[in-house]
Structures are given as structure tokens and as C-alpha cells.
Amino acid sequence: MIDLFIIKVGGNVIDNPALLQSFLGKFAAISAKKILIHGGGKVATRIGDKLGIESKYVDGRRITDADTIDVVTMVYGGLVNKQLVAQLQSKGCNAIGLTGADGNIIPATKRPVKTIDYGFVGDVKPEQVQTAPVVALLEAGITPVFAPLTHDGNGQILNTNADTIASSLAIALSAKYNVRLIYCFEKKGVLSDPNDDNAVINLINKDIYQQLMDQKVLSDGILPKLDNAFGAINHGVKEVLIGHAEDVLSNTTDTVAGTLIC
């Protein structure tokens, strides 16, 4: 029996107004305890461009320099987060917007410089997550909505991968709840053929994952989600599911669509 759903919604859903509204309606309709973690989408890039702050990426990862951390803090923790909370309130879901700094819920460590200096980017360990404030909100019937931001304990906000935040929260909260972690994005699940949206692999265990890796059939973009999924499973999370944002409500039932990780 699953009694907590931790749901991460990707940036491409955030950037699609119609898909986002549909997703939020279905998320609000989930009657069980739930947490939402959202990505940033392209809003920070657009606002940064208006402010004359160039977005820089290495291998698809944002370089978060001093100017950029100001932009993503404003956009992720402010604009995007509060818009989502307001929209959930309009749909009857009593939500509260949070970052990892609020309640000291998610302390992080600034990523050390190796070959690349990612700037103000945070790495999270599940054992650092402070669950008491989250449990108090859940037990009070309030749905936490987390922006992809953490803090270093010394006053510095850090930009942090939303998939990792979702996985870390799921692992930490699995000590109290039976958790299903759901990654929602614009695809129907993990695909055996990245060019065929219907080529969904319905079930992946460790052996199947190794076979898929050996066959090199998985797209690079799905690998971090699978790494986070198996990390969560290995540390107490009951189930992880990767699927389309439109399927979020059905994916909180026993009849799931997408890819179940076990």
C-alpha cells in the first residue's frame, strides 16, 4: 500500500501551458499524501536573456555563476514555484512552495571543481535531508511544492538537479512512508527506440537495465533518471515509475502506464 507519492515534473512540461494545466489538474486530484518537485524549464533562460545574462551550458548542464544563481533563485524559487502553488490552490490542492533552504530541509554541498567549474551547483545526500518539517506539512494536509534549489548552510543558495532532489526526498521519507517516486515528463516512459514514442519498456529491473546499457539502446537523457531511480530503490523506496505527465493520476493506482522500476 503506497501512502506517499513523490512526483517530479520536468521542465518541458513547465514550458507547455496546456500540458502543465492538465498535469496540475490531475495532480490536484490525487487524494493521497503527495509532494511535487518541479524543474525550471526555459523561463530562467528567457529572463536571463532580457537581463543581459547569458546562459552557459556544458554537456547540457547549466553553469551557475554569480549572476545566474540570482536569476534561477528568482525564477525557480519565485516565479515558477509560486505560479504552480497558486494554480494548485485554484484546483483545490492546498499547497505550499518551498526551496531546500526553507526549514533547513535540504542542505547541500557546493559541487567541487574538477575538470569543469559548475559554479553554484549543489550536490545532495539523502541522509542530509531534514524530514520533520515535510512530515508535519503532510500530516497537516498540506502539499509541499519544491523548487530545484538547496543551500550550503552558510547562506548560499545552490542550483540543484530536480531529479536528484526528488530521489533524495523519496529515500529520506521512505523511513516513515511507503513511497512511490514518479518522474513525469513529455514521454510515455523509458523507450527502447528514442524515435518511437510507443516503444515503452514497461518494466526494468537491474538485469534488464544492464542488458539495455550493453545494447546501447537508451537515450542519454533518460540515463540520469534511471540512475536516480535505482539509487532510490536501493535505499528503501518501494517503487519508482517513469511516465508521461498526462498519466500522473492513473500512475498513483495499481494500473500504471509507463516504466516501472523494481
Rank of each mutant, 00 (worst) to 15 (best):
T68F: 09
D67E: 15
V85E: 01
N94D: 07
T99G: 15
D67Y: 12
I96Y: 10
V71W: 03
N81W: 08
V80T: 15
N104P: 00
V72L: 08
A86K: 13
Q83R: 09
Q87L: 14
Q89D: 13
G97D: 05
Q83L: 15
C93F: 03
A95G: 10
N94C: 06
I69T: 05
T109Y: 07
I69A: 07
P112N: 14
T68I: 12
V85K: 00
I69M: 10
L84T: 03
Y76F: 15
N94P: 00
G77T: 11
T99R: 02
Q89P: 00
V75L: 10
Q89F: 14
G92L: 07
I105F: 09
D102R: 05
A86G: 14
L79C: 06
A95S: 13
V75S: 01
V71K: 01
A95N: 06
D102G: 07
A95V: 02
G103R: 12
V75N: 03
V80C: 11
L88H: 00
D67S: 15
V85S: 02
D67K: 15
T99I: 08
V72I: 10
M74Q: 05
C93N: 02
P112Q: 11
Y76V: 08
D102L: 04
A86C: 04
G92H: 14
P112W: 08
V85G: 00
G97W: 08
Q89S: 09
P107K: 05
I69E: 08
M74L: 14
N81G: 08
G97T: 10
P107D: 07
G92I: 13
M74H: 02
V71F: 07
N94V: 08
Q83D: 05
R111Y: 09
G78P: 03
A101R: 15
D67W: 06
T68K: 04
R111F: 04
A86Q: 09
Y76R: 03
T99D: 01
P112A: 13
V72E: 01
R111M: 14
A101L: 14
Q87T: 11
V80A: 09
A86F: 05
Q87R: 12
Y76S: 13
L84M: 10
Q87K: 14
L84N: 00
L98E: 02
G100I: 08
Q87F: 07
S90Q: 14
G97P: 03
V71S: 02
K91Y: 11
G100Y: 01
I106T: 06
S90H: 07
G100A: 10
I106W: 03
S90A: 14
V80E: 00
C93L: 05
L84A: 10
G97Q: 02
L88I: 08
N104E: 15
L88D: 01
I106E: 01
G100Q: 06
N94A: 06
N81H: 05
G77V: 07
A101E: 06
G100T: 09
P112K: 11
K82G: 02
A101I: 07
